[in-house]
Design a protein around this nucleic acid. Structure first.
Lengths: 197, 197
DNA sequence: CCAGTTGCCTAGGAGGTCTAGGCAAGGTTA
DNA sequence: TAACCTTGCCTAGACCTCCTAGGCAACTGG
């Protein structure tokens, strides 16, 4: 009786799950919901992905790769402060355009998936940005971590409404924060702290 | 036949759910799991909390209040850089000691719950820290947001293994990051950017 | 001491995850 | 062309979580 097949593949499922995540939130990405979207029974998906967990992991890996691509494109041909701002804006723009995917990118991955992910590219690109600031060794590592933390923290708080409806918009603060980070990178303190005013 | 009652109340359920969150992860805090822990049927919990959602919200509010208490205690009698480090350490220590509660604190709350939460205290305390740095107006707001972002981002990346097993530990980088934030607060750039070296 | 309230119960439906096994369409090989 | 095998989706069903409705028994207070 059944005529047309839906034409499912692991890749199509992953992409559809990513769209679903952006529409209804990553936590609502479910095997049943995805099957419904394709007009098939949920058991049918298990030939392509082995579990709901694997489906979500695939979305996470897709998001990490997409994000790395966006950032890489934004970074091309820029250096110093321009590179910092381009990186930051690309990062934040991706998170706002694709909230579900971005949430997926924060899924804790087991080491095997992590190694296969684009997260190494993220660190590399952050280090590339820092080449404009003459930071090396431990200071560079710490700066990479500060930038990751600040970017991720900012978009994550912004997404969860942490900045409220105050007069100063999240948009305005963003450039202030980037200015401060740029200044921090240019004046990176030597270990032990700098005590003078 | 049943003799002893479990003695459930909304408060006991909330505290037990918080412990459960720290043990098995916030995403696994479930009405059934909690009922199992008390040796009662899951339906019994619905006299005390109206839904799984409410249970999780209660844990979130508990965590926000506890975190505010810890930070307030750490902040007492300190100013300037000492206050910054005390705030940051209290924040990070809480997140590491209570990963499930901390995850709960990041649950998106609806405005009503948010207003009743301790998150206003968080902003207030951050502003208190900044009094040692002579920041006012928009710069102060931006600095509050940078600190929140950096702290939250750092502990969140640390918790999800984002810092890998690199030679430089998360512990070591933390003090480097705090030094940099301290420097950024002391040298907060004026709007428009500072271009000199 | 009896009435009302409270605390936990049983029963059951809806929806999500996942396994086992089946059948039929399409491509492969003789 | 026929037999075969693989692939794609199916049904059936077990198990879990969430939540509602309704019930009984044990406390509590007038």
């Amino acid at each position: 009786m059944r005529v047309a097949r839906a034409g499912l593949t692991a890749d199509r499922l992953t992409r559809a799950a990513a769209e679903l995540a952006d529409e209804v939130g990553f936590e609502n990405v479910t095997v049943s919901a995805l099957a419904r979207r394709f007009g098939v029974k949920d058991a049918s998906l298990y030939s392509h992905v082995s579990s709901a967990r694997e489906l979500r992991t695939r979305v996470a890996l897709l998001a990490l790769a997409e994000l790395a691509d966006e950032v890489a494109a934004a970074l091309a041909g820029r250096a110093g402060r321009d590179a910092l701002v381009a990186f930051a804006d690309a990062y934040r723009d991706y998170a706002r355009a694709h909230p579900g995917r971005y949430a997926a990118a924060r899924l804790p991955l087991d080491p095997a998936d992590l190694a296969a992910s684009a997260s190494a590219r993220h660190s590399e690109m952050t280090r590339a940005v820092l080449r404009g600031y003459r930071l090396t060794g431990d200071a560079q590592t710490d700066a990479v971590r500060l930038l990751h933390s600040a970017f991720h923290g900012y978009v994550s708080l912004e997404a969860s409404g942490g900045f409220g409806h105050q007069p100063r918009t999240a948009e305005e603060s963003w450039s202030g924060v980037l200015d401060a980070l740029d200044a921090a990178l240019r004046n990176w303190p030597s270990p032990g702290g700098v005590r003078e005013a």
